[in-house]
Nucleic acid binder design. Sequence first.
DNA 1: GTGGTCTAGACCACT
DNA 2: GTGGTCTAGACCACG
Lengths: 131, 131, 131, 131
Amino acid sequence: MPWEFRKDVPLYLQLMERLQRQIVSGAVAPGERLPSVRELAAEAGVNPNTMQRALSEMERRELVFSQRTAGRYVTADGERIRRLREELAGVQIRAFLEGMERLGFRPEEIGELLRRQTGGTPPDGKGEREA
Amino acid sequence: MPWEFRKDVPLYLQLMERLQRQIVSGAVAPGERLPSVRELAAEAGVNPNTMQRALSEMERRELVFSQRTAGRYVTADGERIRRLREELAGVQIRAFLEGMERLGFRPEEIGELLRRQTGGTPPDGKGEREA
Amino acid sequence: MPWEFRKDVPLYLQLMERLQRQIVSGAVAPGERLPSVRELAAEAGVNPNTMQRALSEMERRELVFSQRTAGRYVTADGERIRRLREELAGVQIRAFLEGMERLGFRPEEIGELLRRQTGGTPPDGKGEREA
Amino acid sequence: MPWEFRKDVPLYLQLMERLQRQIVSGAVAPGERLPSVRELAAEAGVNPNTMQRALSEMERRELVFSQRTAGRYVTADGERIRRLREELAGVQIRAFLEGMERLGFRPEEIGELLRRQTGGTPPDGKGEREA
DNA sequence: GTGGTCTAGACCACT
DNA sequence: GTGGTCTAGACCACG
């Protein structure tokens, strides 16, 4: 069953995003071999060319590398993965902050709210509204 | 031009989400009249019944109220809107935290990262990678 | 626009019920002239024969009487109307009690509940739930 | 055989009313499984969507709950059912009182009449008119 | 015109 | 099979 994609951002970027998350989260380990382009494309429900482009771009960024005939592997460079992790975090953080500001929250407030949700003084254990 | 929707969450919930954001952000002012169900539905590219359901649900939550034949209005209750704002913030915060944790960040780290992005040491342009 | 009727009880009985209520409530005064059968039938959206039957039955009960050519009149006998009033009350009371018992209330409880709703110690002024 | 409905009140409300009475009266026991939406709809002679709406509303009120694929069940919360019972009683009582007042009875009289019908002097058969 | 309700028929995920 | 959602199209009362 094909994955879910947004229509307003290039498909190959969304594919990269997903693959990168899998690397960062450890779903695929450093140095691990990736499935073939065809397989990945089939799984995602996209054209192999599109998947190929995503992987090429990741190769350019040295997140994966291809071994001639032996397939494609995730980088074993832990430092590189760490940088990727922070990069993805940055994207996510900026999106979050923008979303919160569109809700009319000032940066200072946001920090305070997060502190309540995470560590600091826990509220009452169920700040969950119906949402 | 129809809006963008995810397929994995009910349409009427997504419609509610968007409308609620418009209320919270002040894009539609408290007490202001909303476009008719049919107009909103056409704008969103959904069936009027679906939009009706979204609005009915919001009515139940006292975010809007309908005036028999005169149309539908945003609540004028500022306190109610404030509560909605915090509710939406909560949803967004939890989604953010979950996303970060899937990236392998501990709650403490997240706070630190945010501090860098917002207050504390202002971004100097080097913090931004291409992303 | 025709009145509302239940399908499971004879039409003429329902017509009688309505007419009798109008007499008892004073909507039509004792001794007052009634509209013609045709008019009444048209108003109710029923066949004139059906309305005729209702009126004949009421005539038999001496609630109305017809003046040869001059039309039909409500009885001027106050005592008769008083009896009718109690009769209608009886129907209503029995229906009420039956309904309450189908809800599982014992006769004693019902009296207590009514006392709260009417006189006695008024509850808090708004025992109204959403209903 | 389709049920009987009034035309002047929404069908889904009448469906709720009937289902709620069945719960309160114990015709369906707490925790018991309900027939499927489609069955109930067929029995009532309404569109499945309409029945669905009635049940959804009852679900919102926590009178029933649905088990993904396993069907829908009456709440096992006896207290909730007790509240429903009183709510339905309240509706019925208010309707009764209004009906009696339209007949021109003062609240005090009504209490007296009920006392005769229920406790106090038991009906001797003469209190019953043909009605 | 407005909101509200109803029907008919379809598709989905779940199991 | 279940509940849940969505669309399409219709009708209504209210002003």
